[in-house]
C-alpha cells in the first residue's frame, strides 16, 4: 500500500527515456521563446493570448512540484494550493510592502516555500497513503482562513487582497508587458524543468524513487528515508511556490479566496491527468488546468445542449466523471498512457 502511484513495471517516466530525443525539446523551447516575435508582431497572438500561455506554464510548474512529490516520491498531497498561496503572497507582499523588483522576489518565494514545505514534511513523515491525503486535505481547506488571520492583515490586506502591477519590459525592449512576462515565465519554467530532470537522473533521484517503490527496502539499502522525504516535500513546495509567485506577478492580484480548496484539486487533477510520474506529464497537466479553467464552462454548455439535458450542467460534473474514467482507463495519466501506447506500437 505504501507505493502510491506506480509499480516497478509501470510505464514510468521520462527518466527512462533515451537522451537522443533531447534536441527537439530544445527546439520547441526555442520556438516558444520566439513566439512574441512571430506571433506578437503579426498579431496572431494577442496580449491576452500570451497571458493564457503564461498561466499554462505557471500551472505546469505547480503541477511539476506535485509530481515530484507524489509521482516520484510516493507522498500524496491534496493541499498543494497552500504552497502556491505562500509563494504568491511572499512575492506580492515583497513587491507591495517593500517595493522589491519582481524578479528578486522569486528566489525568496522559493526559499520560504521550501522551508514551509520542509516543516510540513516533518509531521507528514509519519503518515502514509490515506492519512497523508487527509492531513493535506485539511491544509487545503484551511488555507483561505489562515490567510485572513487578523495579525497578518497589516501585510496581507485581509480579504481585500493585494494589487500589484505587471512590470514593463526592461531596456526599452519592443515587447508588451504580457509578452515580456511570458518570456520570464518560460525561462523560469525551462530552468526548473531542467533542474528537475537532472535531479531525477541523479543518485538522489533514484533514492527518491526507491523510497516510493519500497521505503523499507530503501532504508535497508542505506537511504535516509526521513531526510529524503522531508527534503522532497520542501522541493515540491518550492516548485509549486515559485509557480504561485509567478502567478501573482502575471495576474497582478492575490486574495485569500483565490487559494481555496479548488486550487489544490486543480493541481492534483493536472498531475493525475498529465501523468503522475512524468515530466512531460506536468506540461500536459499545466495546459489542462488552464484550459479547463478557461473553457470548461463553454464546453459544458455545448455538451449540455448537444445531448439536450434538461439541466444546466456545471463543469465540475464533467470534470469529476472524467477523473473517475481516467483512473480506469489511464491511471498513469495522458503521458503514461501515451508512453504505454508507444511501447506497444513498437512492440517492446
Amino acid at each position: 500500500m505504501a507505493t502510491t502511484a506506480t509499480t516497478a513495471n509501470s510505464p514510468v517516466t521520462a527518466a527512462a527515456r533515451p537522451a537522443g530525443h533531447k534536441w527537439w525539446i530544445w527546439l520547441m523551447v526555442l520556438l516558444l521563446a520566439l513566439l512574441p516575435l512571430l506571433g506578437g508582431k503579426t498579431g496572431l497572438i494577442s496580449n491576452y493570448g500570451f497571458l493564457q500561455l503564461s498561466l499554462m506554464i505557471v500551472y505546469a510548474i505547480a503541477v511539476l512540484g506535485l509530481i515530484l512529490l507524489t509521482g516520484f516520491n510516493g507522498q500524496i498531497s491534496l493541499g498543494h494550493g497552500a504552497f502556491f498561496a505562500v509563494g504568491a503572497y511572499t512575492s506580492a507582499v515583497l513587491i507591495d510592502q517593500a517595493s522589491w523588483p519582481y524578479w528578486a522576489t522569486l528566489p525568496v518565494a522559493a526559499i520560504v516555500c521550501f522551508l514551509v514545505g520542509y516543516i510540513f514534511g516533518m509531521p507528514a513523515l509519519r503518515l502514509e497513503g490515506h492519512y497523508l491525503a487527509l492531513a493535506t486535505f485539511a491544509l487545503a481547506v484551511a488555507v483561505p482562513q489562515f490567510l485572513k488571520y487578523r495579525h497578518f492583515e497589516w501585510f496581507t490586506n485581509g480579504v481585500q487582497g493585494i494589487n500589484i502591477f505587471k512590470p514593463d519590459p526592461p531596456f526599452g525592449l519592443p515587447l508588451s508587458a504580457d509578452q515580456w512576462m511570458y518570456l520570464i515565465v518560460l525561462f523560469v519554467a525551462v530552468l526548473m524543468f531542467w533542474i528537475a530532470r537532472n535531479l531525477l537522473d541523479s543518485r538522489a533521484g533514484r533514492a527518491m524513487m526507491a523510497i516510493r517503490d519500497h521505503s523499507m527496502a530503501a532504508s535497508t539499502m542505506g537511504v535516509n528515508v526521513a531526510h529524503y522525504k522531508t527534503v522532497v516535500f520542501g522541493i515540491s513546495a518550492l516548485y509549486t511556490g515559485v509557480a504561485g509567485a509567478l502567478h501573482a506577478i502575471i495576474f497582478e492580484f492575490v486574495a485569500p479566496d483565490s487559494f481555496r480548496f479548488e486550487l489544490s484539486i486543480a493541481i492534483l487533477v493536472g498531475a493525475v491527468v498529465g501523468g503522475i510520474a512524468s515530466l512531460p506529464g506536468a506540461v500536459i497537466g499545466g495546459i489542462f488546468v488552464q484550459v479547463i479553467d478557461k473553457y470548461a464552462d463553454a464546453l459544458t454548455k455545448k455538451l449540455t445542449t448537444a445531448v439536450s439535458l434538461p439541466l444546466d450542467l456545471e463543469p465540475w460534473t464533467i470534470y469529476g466523471i472524467a477523473l473517475i474514467l481516467l483512473m480506469y482507463v489511464m491511471p498513469m495519466g495522458i503521458a503514461g498512457g501515451l508512453t504505454a501506447l508507444w511501447r506497444k506500437l513498437r512492440g517492446s
Binding site: L78, H130, L268, G320
Partner: peptide
C-alpha cells in the same frame, strides 16, 4: 469495486471526482 486493488492515489482521485460530481450536481439542480 473495480478499483479495489488500485493504488491509494487512484482511490483518492476517485473520491475527489465524486466530490466534484455531487457538488456541481447540487449547484446545477
Amino acid at each position: 469495486r473495480p478499483l479495489h486493488s488500485a493504488p491509494v492515489l487512484s482511490i483518492v482521485v476517485v473520491f475527489i471526482g465524486l466530490l466534484a460530481i455531487f457538488h456541481s450536481l447540487a449547484g446545477a439542480i
